[in-house]
Structure formats: structure tokens, C-alpha cells
């Protein structure tokens, strides 16, 4: 009677290559048919160190990659690894972006550009027109500058210090685009305050939009309850991480607070 027969545990995969993407940010490549949808994530396991979620950033020709920024003990350990080393991979998990809509805008802040770039690849393959607002602190932090060069994606850069593209928030560029073009749907991933701003813009202009939320994940497959959201009780790892605009309205903690490893509330 039970439906799920697969095992939810990491599989050790060889790191095929590691490619630098930006300052302290690299993509880790694996061979394998992950069958992920854009917006889904995998759990990476470093035996003896821990297990953490990462959005899938590339998937093509039996290969996939995740793009990681070095920000803590787990990722530091990851950056100490080299091609040929093995890493545990579990998933893919979660509900990804719908990919619906005609003319699309992607809004990515920091490493939030990672899952959106996988989505951009898919949308271009489907023949859709894609604007990709790619924001970061400085030009050294901007991901994928080479990846979309000469391609079909309209790249729009935004940096806090103005060292590349627009100076200021990437959501300023969203407002600009929405006033110039008829947009079918907006997909967003990045820091929560950026998501909140993008949410308010899309709400005001009545544009369909989807948002990828980040919360503390432990198991990744909907059992432990560490990523449940206030307002609805939805699990980021199962009902999310991507939520449509109308659903975001019901998530009371959005832009306000989240929970840590113990379940304690911490302000955003």
C-alpha cells in the first residue's frame, strides 16, 4: 500500500569538476541523471561533517551541478575538496518553479541566481523570452557572467556598489522592466528582504510570481518539521521551497523571522 519505495539517503558521487563562478563561489559538477526540476534542491553530505541543502544550478546531458558560496564550516570543508573526491548527494527534493508564462523575468540576488540560471536554461530551450536580473554585492560576486554571454537570455546586472550594471537593488530593475514590457510571470530567489520587496512589487502590479524560500532544513523530505512555516504550517522542503504569490500572502513569517536548528525563532 505504501507508495514510496526509494531510499532517502545520500549516494556517494565523484566530483567530476569544480568551476569557479565568482568570489568564494564555485560550481560542483557530478555525472548522473538527477531528473531535477528548476527550483528543486539536493542535500549534500560530507561524511563526518554534515548534510546541507543546495539548489540545483545546472542540469544537462546526464550531468548536474550545484553552485556554492563559502560561508561557513560546511562550505569551507566543501571548498577543500577537489575533482575526483566523493560527496554524498540526496534528492532532488521540493517543489520547483512552474516555468509558466510567456515573457519571463528572473530576479536573483547573490547565490539566489543559482536555481534561476537552471530555470533560464530550460525556458530558453522552450523558446521563451527571458530577462534575468542578476544582483550581487559587487561585480566580483556576480554569478554566471560567462554562462549567458552571447546567449538568448537578456542579462541585467545590478550591484550594491554599482561596479557592474545598475547601482542599488535588483528590485529597482524589476520595477523598470515591468513598466516597459508586458511580463507573463516573475520568478525570484535570493535574500528574504529582496524577496519581500519583489513580492510587494508583483502584488501591486498584479503580476503572477513565484518565490523560492530558504529555511533551516534538516531531513529534506518532510518528516522532521524544522522548516515549517508560520501561517500555514507548510514544509519548505515539501510544499516549497517555491511558492506562488497568492500562497506567499498566507506565510505569516515571510520577511519577518525564521527558526534555527533548535526551532527557536530568530529575526530576519
Amino acid at each position: 500500500m505504501t507508495t514510496a519505495q526509494r531510499s532517502e539517503r545520500p549516494r556517494m558521487l565523484v566530483i567530476e569538476k569544480i568551476t569557479a563562478e565568482a568570489k568564494d563561489t564555485s560550481s560542483f559538477w557530478f555525472t548522473g541523471d538527477l531528473k531535477a526540476k528548476p527550483g528543486q534542491f539536493v542535500m549534500l553530505w560530507i561524511p563526518g561533517t554534515g548534510l546541507k541543502p543546495f539548489g540545483v544550478s545546472y542540469q544537462d546531458d546526464g550531468r548536474f551541478a550545484v553552485t556554492v558560496r563559502k560561508i561557513g564550516t560546511f562550505t569551507e570543508k566543501l571548498f577543500g575538496m577537489k575533482a575526483g573526491d566523493r560527496l554524498g548527494v540526496q534528492g532532488p527534493y521540493g517543489r520547483g518553479f512552474s516555468g509558466k508564462g510567456g515573457r519571463i523575468v528572473l530576479v536573483g540576488g547573490g547565490y539566489g541566481a543559482a536555481p534561476l540560471s537552471f530555470l533560464a536554461d530550460e525556458l530558453v530551450r522552450e523558446g521563451k523570452e527571458v530577462f534575468f536580473i542578476n544582483g550581487a554585492a559587487t561585480k566580483d560576486h556576480v554569478l554566471y557572467r560567462e554562462r549567458f554571454k552571447g546567449g538568448k537570455v537578456h542579462m541585467i546586472y545590478s550591484t550594491d556598489d554599482g561596479s557592474l550594471g545598475h547601482r542599488g537593488f535588483c528590485t529597482d530593475c524589476l520595477t523598470g522592466l515591468l513598466s516597459k514590457h508586458k511580463i507573463g510571470r516573475v520568478f525570484c530567489c535570493g535574500p528574504e528582504m529582496m524577496l519581500r520587496k519583489a513580492f510587494e512589487i508583483c502584488l501591486e502590479k498584479d503580476i503572477p510570481a513565484e518565490f523560492s524560500l530558504e529555511r533551516h532544513l534538516k531531513c529534506g523530505f518532510g518528516v522532521c518539521g524544522s522548516c515549517c512555516l508560520d501561517g500555514t504550517g507548510w514544509r519548505v522542503c515539501r510544499e516549497g521551497p517555491v511558492f506562488a504569490l497568492d500562497d506567499m500572502k498566507k506565510i505569516a513569517e515571510f520577511g519577518q523571522y525564521k527558526r534555527d536548528a533548535s526551532g527557536r525563532v530568530v529575526k530576519i
Binding site: T2, Q5, R6, E8, G50, C219, F221
Partner: peptide, 15 residues
Amino acid sequence: RREGHNPPIILTEGE
């Protein structure tokens, strides 16, 4: 307050 054990904290092996 407790943070619990280091993940992986849950796995499945078939059923």
C-alpha cells in the same frame, strides 16, 4: 534549548 544531533538525522532504507 537543544540543537539535536548533526544531520543526517533521518534516513529511509526502503520501508
